[in-house]
Nucleic acid binder design. Sequence first.
DNA 1: CGCTACATTGAATCGAGTCAACACGCGTGG
DNA 2: CCACGCGTGTTGACTCGATTCAATGTAGCG
Lengths: 231, 231
Amino acid sequence: MKSAVGPICKNCKSRSQSLFSFCQVAETEQINSNKSTQVFRKGEYIFVENNVPAALYCINSGMVKLSKSVANGKEQIIRIAQEGNFLGYRSLILKSRYPYSAIALEECRICIIPKADFFALLRNNNDFYQALMELICKEADEAEAKLSDIAYKPVRSRIAEALLLLANASTEEDHAITLTREDLASFVGTVKETAIRVISELRDANIISIDKRKIRILNPQMLTYISNVCD
Amino acid sequence: MKSAVGPICKNCKSRSQSLFSFCQVAETEQINSNKSTQVFRKGEYIFVENNVPAALYCINSGMVKLSKSVANGKEQIIRIAQEGNFLGYRSLILKSRYPYSAIALEECRICIIPKADFFALLRNNNDFYQALMELICKEADEAEAKLSDIAYKPVRSRIAEALLLLANASTEEDHAITLTREDLASFVGTVKETAIRVISELRDANIISIDKRKIRILNPQMLTYISNVCD
DNA sequence: CGCTACATTGAATCGAGTCAACACGCGTGG
DNA sequence: CCACGCGTGTTGACTCGATTCAATGTAGCG
């Protein structure tokens, strides 16, 4: 990772997609003056599981995986975050350690906002507070939904669901998915080999295409169907 | 379910354990004057998945399971709530439908607080707001932790973990666990038969005892150990 | 007393993980 | 410019944990 000249919050292209859209210009100036910006290369850690948080992270560009390390050197990817998303606020609020690591999936530009500024914003801007509350509620809902998915849906369905989700969130042309097979597997709670087998099946059935490792969705209806089939 | 004379919030024995501990007496009076209280018998629904919430629920006594119905008429128990716990606040905040049902596991006395009073409290009491925010953060963390547990730990470990958790939260003498095998299975994401097999093994190994269906923990250290073994 | 809900056990089956071998493509350094 | 190595992707064979199906036992309650 290395320091970089950052964007100006006020004019940041991801501001409108982030919680900062609830901030006044004066507030963004305040945030802007204290933040720093760093570039992380693919694979670099933005923060590490079990560490004590000291700042709020805001993704200016790039994709980040949030993952817990579990038994046998495996990992569980909890969520994938992108441009405009915040990272680490829950641990700041709880004054607890990070429950997962944040790792760059590609070159990422990240703004680092001192926690004092984050707390000041929470204190002074009720709209921001409220929006953050709603965001966290959604995260809780999503985690619980994913919970029952993993518990009851077969891998095939979970992969189908993940592909739809990832394609939707993709910033590539054609909504291509660029995750490695390993990351895709960790995202749905399986192993690389199993993920590959399912992907190959879907390719053979012309539901997706694979070009230079990139996955593209050809038949979203069919994927939706598969994502709901639980035998 | 039937209406009942409710407790007085101000003097409620569960107030100190609930978020209402962040309320002023005047606020509890306000809440108290508009709430109603109902008794639900074992198996009765307090609210139903996908319905639109109209109120906040506060458990005065009894255990409640929060569960999603999944494929093949199975269910996934997300959480078990008890005396002093609130239900349904996330859906109120998000103005969304309930992502799961709340079902009484035993006779429950539940106070029903109009959503207007809940929102008023949120608006006027920052300590309450903050405490609720922290609670929701914890729920999100727990859901994510459970997620990776289900994805990577074998059933045996998950049952061991659940038994420790449930015994700890138990209000029975001796911290006995009274859940049915089926509910225990749904809680850890497996089926009744598998849960029974694991429980029988643990009994044979003298790690737990079973008396009239009630489970008691004999060797918590061993259970803790088992809960962390992932082969 | 008998019904009904819950608990238990066995046998068969299957989805998914593990292990192992191999293919592909990209970048570096000789 | 090519060879080598490493990260990633792919495929097959085997194994095993867990689900399913089926039968039977047990306890509580009207």
